[in-house]
Design a protein around this nucleic acid. Structure first.
Lengths: 337, 337
DNA sequence: ATAGGTTATCGAAGCGCTTCGATACCGATT
DNA sequence: AATCGGTATCGAAGCGCTTCGATAACCTAT
């Protein structure tokens, strides 16, 4: 293993000079710089991460806490995680992967040990138990998702309230009067996940304003659960002509069931999905949808965290404006008999 | 920030004693141990990761290199990644997330800087460009996937050859004579991903042995691509009665298309999938499948790597035996006219 | 009582780096 | 010629921990 001292000796300078060449924190003559850089290359030198962290109290690592549950919106999680890792590298940071398993203790461990300089939390619940710790250790952090109380926190999220409103609006504008919402699994609502509840608020308030009827039903993913849910909806509201889905694993089953029942999309029923673009375009019907901008969220989170670590940047809540893309699954409401 | 020295002072012992209490590398009297542990608790002490890494040349971090591509078998990747993170924690290690983006350089960087003690590589190609580096730096590592040359390497993977064979066997046993294979996207074969090619080998050799006809077609995910692929298959081999799918995002489109064309599963066509159990059970037809044991692979990889880091364990190739679960999508071949 | 062997603890060195004065040299200003 | 402000470099201290002898205290066996 090559050390700074060896590079220094090889280049005929002192260790501190090599350090300054590396960090650029003091001016170095062009001549010396080149000699040092050459030695670094020739010896294949890589600074030791531990020593660096110890001396500078900076690890150049960002911790990313992903939910342990693999049952929910997995591709989105993955996409965010990869976006985070990629953007972090672009800023010179590596990413430490923490699962939700450890719970709040992970926050304590990371903050206490100086393992990471800051952390990004995904899947934040409205009343998340990690937040008190985050505030008290004042660990630099960014949340992906929006808790109930955001004082002193930096959050990045899609504006799910506006997303809900946007979906209702789109359908209402086309004349749909009876709209059904197929939501995430009941467990998601029970644990008060922010995005699910806020979507619902948006859906409800906008439909109230626009005078359309709204029926919300949580739904486990999969074909069987979807069959039951759809039957219940059509039973309660036979006139339903617009459906909003916020559950990736319910999308394809829903479309299959509608087809099977002879309900044409979009002639008989219009469908709007809240899902990543990939899902919307790869479904059996090209879906009108509001995209979940996973990449953008990951990138934003990293940018904000890095800004904080650099002493720039402040606490703030960034809500990304939703965008509805019209594809082939929505159209005018059928005229009622 | 609390340091070892402060704990030592608080407990009235020397720093080294505290260190030995923590590591258990020398015997400590019960009395002293308790006093020290109490101080640790009262002061909320966490050892500094950087200092530890520097002094012990061990970071207690495992690097996990995931593919950058988000287009392929995403849930499997995610499940493996989470299994790795979870098992690693159980062994006292944290996980550093590296994306394929950096390519081979990441290996050099991690090995050189002592950032991680070892690494796990996912999505290994047959002739992976990271392997020479891995061998030359003799960085402790485990591959998930099987390259062409495994000398000096430890690998964990599902036995995809046996998996292919198993699928053919199952269908042949039920009398199917004409079998079609819907594979991964063409790009996957072009970059010589090991698992795809080995599955194919297994499929081909077993079908030759059993005297059944086999047609293999790569397929991009999604509905449209699937429609084209299926049409071509049925055009070339109208008598096809068994289909093997190895492409998660083709599964649901395939089932929808078959339904749409009035081909009943399993009465007219039998379908075997190679996919995670979750996909097989949540599809619109409960699929007979060979599971991809993501969790098990992640766990194995970590166990082997930790064994290596402890000086136990040797280079070896672990192939997990495939298991075929019969569900509702396969049955006897229809009698030919 | 003394040598020999344990067991429990301490002190000091050192891991590889960053960073803060200090120093030496230079040309420009008076 | 003496002074000043830069610029380029060096040396040494120190980050918080691990680990290796050394030492002291205590048993046991002679």
């Amino acid at each position: 293993m090559v050390t700074l001292a060896e590079v220094a000796q090889h280049a005929g300078v002192s260790a501190s000079t090599v350090s300054y060449v590396l960090s650029g924190k003091r001016s170095i003559s062009a001549n010396t710089r080149q000699r040092v850089e050459r030695s670094i290359r020739e010896l294949g030198y890589h600074p030791n991460a531990g020593a660096r962290a110890l001396a500078s109290s900076k690890s150049n690592i960002i911790a990313l806490m992903v939910p342990l549950r693999t049952d929910m919106y997995v591709p989105v999680m993955m996409e965010i995680a990869i976006a985070v890792a990629t953007s972090a590298r672009a800023h010179g940071y590596d990413v430490l992967l923490l699962t939700g398993e450890e719970g709040p203790d992970a926050v304590r461990r990371v903050a206490g040990s100086g393992l990471a300089d800051g952390m990004i939390l995904m899947d934040v619940e409205l009343d998340d138990e990690r937040l008190p710790l985050l505030r008290e250790t004042d660990q630099p952090s960014v949340l992906i998702g929006l808790p109930a109380d955001t004082t002193g926190l930096t959050c990045v999220d899609l504006d799910f309230r506006a997303t809900g409103a946007l979906c209702v609006e789109h359908l209402a504008k086309q004349g749909h009067q009876d709209i059904a919402v197929i939501g995430e699994a009941p467990a998601v609502y029970e644990r008060h996940t922010g995005f699910a509840e806020r979507t619902l608020e948006g859906l409800r308030s906008r439909s109230r304003e626009l005078g359309v009827r709204l029926l919300h039903r949580p739904c486990e993913g999969g074909y069987d659960a979807m069959a039951v849910t759809l039957a219940r909806i059509l039973d309660e509201r036979p006139g339903t002509s617009g459906i909003i889905v916020q559950n990736e694993s319910a999308v394809e089953p829903l479309l299959a069931l509608l087809r099977q029942q002879g309900r044409a999309v979009p002639e008989d029923v219009s469908v709007v999905a809240i899902c990543p673009d990939q899902v919307a375009t790869q479904a059996s019907v090209r879906l009108t949808s509001v995209a979940i901008p996973a990449q953008e969220m990951g990138r934003h989170a990293v940018d904000h965290l890095v800004a904080k670590l650099d002493g720039r940047g402040s606490d703030e809540v960034v809500l990304i404006a939703p965008e509805l893309t019209v594809r082939g699954s929505t159209g005018p409401a059928p005229s009622r008999p």
